[in-house]
Computed example of a mutant assay.
Amino acid sequence: MSGIKTEKTPLHFTHANGIPGDSYQKFFGFLKDDFDLKYIPLIGMHPDYPVTHDWRFLVDQVIHDIEHQFSGKKVVGLGHSFGSLLTLMCAYKRPELFSQLVIMDPPFVVSKKSILLQCAQKLKLKAVDKLTPAGITLKRTDFWESKEQAYRSMRNNSLFRNFDETCFQDFIQSGLVPAQSGDGVTLRIPKNMEAEIFRTVPAWWWRTPGKAPVPPVHLITADSSPFYKQGFPQNVQKIYKIDYSLVKGGHMFPLEQPEKTALLVKNIIEMQRAE
């Protein structure tokens, strides 16, 4: 019966630190034919879900959003960077919410570096800003006279240089808001908030689960990602039996190659279902 429509697979997405969910519209566009895709526009900005040393309230924000938006349906958990680690943490806390996960380049700090970072966090040392991107984040310009000026200022920044043009335009539109001090625009996610999230990445957390999560999980990383270069995905595979795929590009690859990344995500989801 050709007139019967099949129900789309529920898919929940969580964005990277400092990059609002609406910045991923082009990436989403390559997934929406196959998935009922929903996402949180902003993580870390809600007073009911503050940023703390263990991200517990941010994890709760993702869990509550899944429960609210999907009404008991199991979802494919998909996240990028900070959002992918949150999604993985959710899967350990509430595995019944997920059918499977695809985590894109999570800042999953493991092994010796995690011990160093944990000590710096506990002692509240300034070294935390050097061990994480927090220090670089705090040095970023966060005020421009217009979105046009912001575009020119940021387009060749190392973070955004390789963004797909449409993705970068979406970031400019969704990631900037009128400044409170008067004319001009500033970051929707303040750089102080972005830095605090980086500072509080749960360096100790990797030792807590001690076993692979219940839902199937696949990790995607990139050959120029600092996490891949430091061996984090390789250690995650060894310790947690989470396989990974390697793509060309940097840490922001979903916004650098949205179509290729979406196709890979779909292929991985199909592969997980077939296993």
Rank of each mutant, 00 (worst) to 15 (best):
E7C: 02
V217R: 04
N235L: 08
F163H: 09
K73V: 08
F160K: 06
E145G: 05
L85D: 04
Q257K: 13
L37K: 09
V265Y: 06
E256V: 08
R94P: 05
T6H: 10
R207Y: 07
D33K: 11
Y24Q: 00
L78E: 10
N192V: 15
N157W: 15
M45V: 04
Q169W: 09
T137K: 12
S114K: 04
F143C: 08
D33G: 06
A134K: 13
I220P: 07
Y240P: 07
T208K: 13
L264N: 05
H64N: 06
G184N: 15
E67G: 02
F13P: 02
E148C: 02
F57N: 04
H218W: 14
L138N: 12
L187G: 11
T9A: 00
L125E: 03
S114F: 04
P190L: 12
S245C: 05
K211E: 05
E96Y: 12
M45A: 03
G250H: 14
S224R: 15
K241G: 12
G44H: 14
A222V: 07
L88I: 10
G182Y: 10
E165M: 04
E145T: 11
I268C: 02
F198A: 10
P107D: 13
P209N: 00
K8H: 02
F168C: 00
Q61D: 01
